[in-house]
């Protein structure tokens, strides 16, 4: 059964990828790339990677698609040029692919329990993480404790993306949008005029925010954590913006405030590290936070997940604000 699901999903993935290559309507391509992400997420579930699937669905299907759509909203919706040097490219691609296939020859078979990766580092996580870190979800344990430094890096990557967008597009550009809208007498986006949409979204937003909080605080036991929660919380805001207009959303929380929240999120994460240093442990060694190491781990993970969640939420919304404010520029 698993095999059939697997093969079906892989076939669909292949077809979607080929379609993305062929189609030249950007809107269709973006939809297809969202579908591609969703298929990937399903595939990840079938391969037991529930946390990854969750993130891929939230990011690939959600955020990335929204950002892509707001970009074509402000630029162009049609690809105009034909592929360049397709034969040369095909040659490069085939050669690269051939080398990779050659490389798989000595790789352990798919799903082989005797493969080296299941026997060297991973067993300790599987056997000891509950005693050492205390979380049921092993992915959470590794993510936030064993490899917590990678996750700090990940948070900084998101922060960097936000900074880049702010540095390139600027706050002023975002705020001008509101002024322009008011000057033009536009109080809400087109979508806000649909009564059904309005009411449904109004009902959904609190549920989305609630779900985000659940994901944030339930990461110890099930799939989820700060990153996914941040994305979901942000999507609640994005919903609100789509419905009631950018101007209104920016009055709820201004881009500048968002950048402060993001900075504070990164500092929360780093601050936990500094605290552990000051309390005599290594950087991000949560054991020293409390007399009981397990409690220390619990507290440390709670705090850094909070840092991740706030940073991700505020940067996602900030980037969305920046992108949708460009749309006004064209009108």
């Amino acid at each position: 059964m698993e095999l059939i699901i697997d093969i079906t999903l892989l076939t669909f993935l292949g077809l979607t990828a080929l379609a993305i290559n062929r189609i030249d309507k950007l809107f269709c391509i973006i939809m297809l790339s969202g579908i591609y992400s969703l298929l990937c997420a399903s595939l990840f579930v079938s391969m037991d990677a529930v946390d990854v699937a969750f993130t891929e669905a939230a990011v690939g299907t959600g955020i990335a698609t929204v950002l892509l759509l707001s970009t074509i909203g402000a630029t162009d919706t049609q690809q105009r040029s034909a592929p360049q040097r397709p034969l040369f490219a095909l040659l490069v691609v085939c050669a690269t692919g051939a080398i990779l296939v050659y490389g798989t020859m000595d790789m352990p078979a798919f799903g082989d329990p005797d493969a080296p990766i299941h026997h060297h580092v991973a067993p300790r996580y599987l056997e000891m993480s509950q005693q050492e870190v205390g979380s049921d979800n092993i992915v959470t344990s590794i993510l936030s404790s064993y490899r917590g430094f990678d996750t700090l890096g990940e948070t900084v990557v998101i922060f960097t993306a936000g900074l880049s967008v702010v540095g390139l597009i600027g706050f002023r550009g975002m705020q001008k949008f509101g002024d322009r809208q008011r000057a033009a007498g536009i109080t809400q986006d087109d979508m806000g005029k649909h009564l059904v949409l309005r009411i449904v979204i109004k009902m959904f937003i609190p549920l989305i925010l609630l779900f985000a909080l659940y994901v944030q605080f339930h990461g110890d036991f099930g799939p989820g954590g700060g990153f996914q929660a941040g994305v979901i919380f942000a999507s609640g805001f994005i919903f609100y913006t789509l419905m009631f207009g950018l101007d209104a959303a920016m009055r709820v929380v201004s881009p500048r405030t968002l950048s402060y929240i993001a900075a504070l999120g990164v500092l929360t994460y780093g601050g936990v590290g500094i605290t552990t240093l000051l309390m005599g442990g290594n950087f991000l060694d949560y054991n020293v936070l409390r007399p009981d190491p397990l409690q220390g781990q619990h507290l440390g993970i709670f705090l850094i997940e909070l840092g991740v969640g706030t940073t991700v939420f505020s940067i996602m919304v900030l980037i969305f604000f920046a992108f949708s404010s460009r749309k006004g520029l064209r009108q």
Binding site: M47, A49, T55, L67, L68, V139, L143, V157, I158
Partner: peptide
């Protein structure tokens, strides 16, 4: 299943969306 690649890919997904943005 082995959780370590899951963790790595979580990070990589984030890097991917940041690059896209």
């Amino acid at each position: 299943s082995n959780p370590l690649p899951h963790v790595l890919i979580l990070t990589a997904i984030v890097v991917g969306v940041a690059t896209t943005a």
